[in-house]
């Protein structure tokens, strides 16, 4: 596969001595969606800003399509579509103008400009607000506008910093579908706090804690890194009967608002238990993820601090 982005041993130390990134290695290949996750202050946005040329790495190199971005910074403007983390906007520009200018800077004019602009606006469900000024938009709509600018501007790679933060659940699902469809033409690098987002979209994920990559792999690979108990939550049509069953089996559980929470050591034990409970009392709701990606991430972060 062709390598689109190659981050090699990148370290960033701020003037106050804080090491925001420490020896980070990261690769993005063509047609991949890569996720960057980590706690607040881990260094995800610092890394993205270095990829965009907004911050200069203290050590290391970043190449885009084989070109060093420090020696040839114009490659960033040619190839990278970027959506910032914060809802940034020009107060006096309408949605149509904000995205339109991105297309104009890429060389679009006349009919192709109007066509592409309408395509992007419709793709992101911004039709109703296309003539709204920046100051009239909610933060969620501003994020959608920024995504539109990124789509208009991008060449071979989209770099998105929390692309669906502040966006409602319906638009969020729609955006995820849009981004998944873009895989065919572009690579994507997404920094996110939304575990559902990274699990759904990403081919590979980098977990950054305190400026270092502490885990890397597909969501399934990361989930299997640690042997953790299988946790699940469920409710049944007869809570009393279920409580008796769990007590008989000497299983520890929590019951709140009719929902049982418990954990078992082995996945197979959990599946057998669910079958038995369902046969006896009928399960009306269940949430079961094993191995749990979210739990694994939390444990990896905790372990790295220890």
């Amino acid at each position: 596969m062709d390598k689109v982005l190659d981050v090699v041993n990148v370290t960033k130390i701020y003037p106050n001595g804080k090491k925001a990134n420490a020896g980070i290695n990261l690769e993005v290949y063509k047609g991949e969606i890569i996720g960057l996750i980590g706690p607040n202050g881990a260094g995800k946005t610092t890394l993205l800003r270095q990829i965009l040329g907004l911050l200069k790495p203290t050590e290391g190199s970043i190449t885009l399509l084989g070109k060093d971005i420090v020696k040839d910074p114009s490659i960033i403007k040619q190839e990278v579509g970027f959506e910032p983390q914060y809802p940034l906007y020009f107060p006096s520009l309408t949605v149509e103008e904000s995205i339109g200018f991105a297309l104009k800077f890429k060389g679009y004019k006349g009919e192709p400009l109007s066509k592409k602009l309408s395509q992007i606006i419709e793709l992101l469900n911004l039709g109703k607000v296309r003539n709204y000024y920046g100051y009239q938009l909610s933060p969620g709509l501003i994020k959608l506008q920024l995504l539109g600018v990124a789509l208009a501007q991008s060449g071979s790679i989209l770099v998105l910093d929390e692309p669906t933060s502040m966006i409602d659940i319906i638009n969020k699902n729609h955006i995820w579908q849009v981004l998944a469809d873009f895989k065919a033409e572009k690579s994507l690098l997404i920094a996110s706090h939304d575990m559902n987002e990274v699990k759904r979209l990403c081919d590979r994920i980098y977990l950054i804690v305190d400026g270092k990559v502490i885990a890397e792999g597909s969501p399934e690979q990361i989930s299997g890194l640690l042997k953790l108990p299988c946790k699940f939550s469920f409710s049944t049509s007869d809570s009393d009967q279920t409580e008796k069953l769990l007590t008989q089996k000497q299983l520890e559980y929590a019951l709140e608002n009719g929902i049982f929470d418990l954990s078992v050591v082995e996945l197979s034990l959990g599946i057998d238990l669910i079958k038995e409970i369902n046969d006896q009392t009928g399960i009306t709701y269940i949430h079961f993820e094993a191995p749990s990606f979210d739990e694994t991430i939390m444990k990896l972060v905790e372990n790295s601090h220890e």
Binding site: R49, L52, G53, L54, P73, S74, K77, Q78, G81, F82, E83, P84, Y86, L88, Y89, F90, F101, A102, F105, K106, L146, V149, A150, Q153
Partner: peptide, 13 residues
């Protein structure tokens, strides 16, 4: 920071 970041979303140096 915010303004540089906003302009970085466009293909203009």
């Amino acid at each position: 920071q915010e303004v540089l970041e906003l302009y970085s979303t466009y293909a203009i140096s």
